[in-house]
């Protein structure tokens, strides 16, 4: 379980996270929803220790953030983070060199599924292929949690479909997944939990199926209530 307890964070004078508490369970796809600039990415970065927090605490299976989490949590940012002159193959080798949790067989499988070529340079990949390689780097790690920042934004429809397919496959099964998004439409049926962020606060956290079952409301309905009503 990933736990956020009253996390606060400001950039300069801007309070990005004022009081953020939520939990993300293993085996669930938890979706952080909020308009852009609301602090969704900051939440993910804070879990990974990529940006210090000003208050509160973050626990991953009861442990604080530190170097030991990097074999247990994978973060897929909204951009690839490998030097542009590296080739696809070299970037995979890099991951293999550093991570004990790297699963080469799975990486190969995804390479084939995404039709990526090892010899291609990262700088020469299309937007969609870059996103796919980025996904490959993160999902080929045998980790308990995967964090994805806006995996669907700014890519073509076909790549989008392929990536959706990844979500419904064994690649995310049994893991705890946190994804951020500002548009819910495409993935409404994919996610288990929703955390609505607004102005640095968590407005609501709920289970999608429970919400439909008990109140007959779609995620969009709840969002409308929270943000407009």
């Amino acid at each position: 379980m990933i736990e956020f307890k009253s996390v606060r964070k400001k950039y300069g004078r801007k309070k990005v996270l004022q009081d953020v508490s939520f939990t993300a369970q293993k085996g669930n796809i938890t979706c952080l929803i909020g308009i852009n600039g609301v602090g969704k990415s900051t939440v993910l970065k804070a879990i990974m220790g990529l940006t210090p927090i000003d208050g509160g605490s973050i626990l991953i299976d009861g442990m604080p953030v530190g170097k030991h989490i990097y074999e247990h949590v994978a973060y897929i940012p909204d951009h690839i983070s490998m030097p542009p002159n590296m080739t696809v193959g070299a970037s995979m080798q890099f991951m293999k060199d550093f991570y004990a949790s790297w699963n080469e067989a799975r990486a190969e499988e995804m390479l084939t599924f995404f039709k990526l070529k090892r010899s291609d340079r990262i700088s020469e990949l299309s937007k969609g292929n870059t996103a796919k390689l980025n996904l490959l780097h993160g999902l080929s790690l045998d980790v308990e949690y995967v964090l994805m920042d806006e995996p669907f934004s700014g890519i073509d429809a076909f790549s989008r479909e392929q990536i959706t397919e990844v979500f419904t496959s064994k690649l995310v099964e049994d893991r705890g997944v946190i994804i951020t998004t500002h548009e819910i439409n495409d993935i409404e049926h994919l996610i288990d939990e929703v955390v609505l962020l607004d102005n640095g606060f968590v407005k609501s956290q709920f289970n999608c199926e429970d919400m439909r079952m008990q109140e007959g409301k779609s995620v969009m309905d709840v969002m409308r209530e929270v943000y407009i009503g």
Partner: peptide, 17 residues
């Protein structure tokens, strides 16, 4: 530098920083 920002990956390596 650049849109790739290698620092993300470097700071997430499972080794002492």
């Amino acid at each position: 530098m650049g849109k790739n920002m290698f620092i993300y990956r470097l700071l997430m390596l499972p080794t002492e920083r």
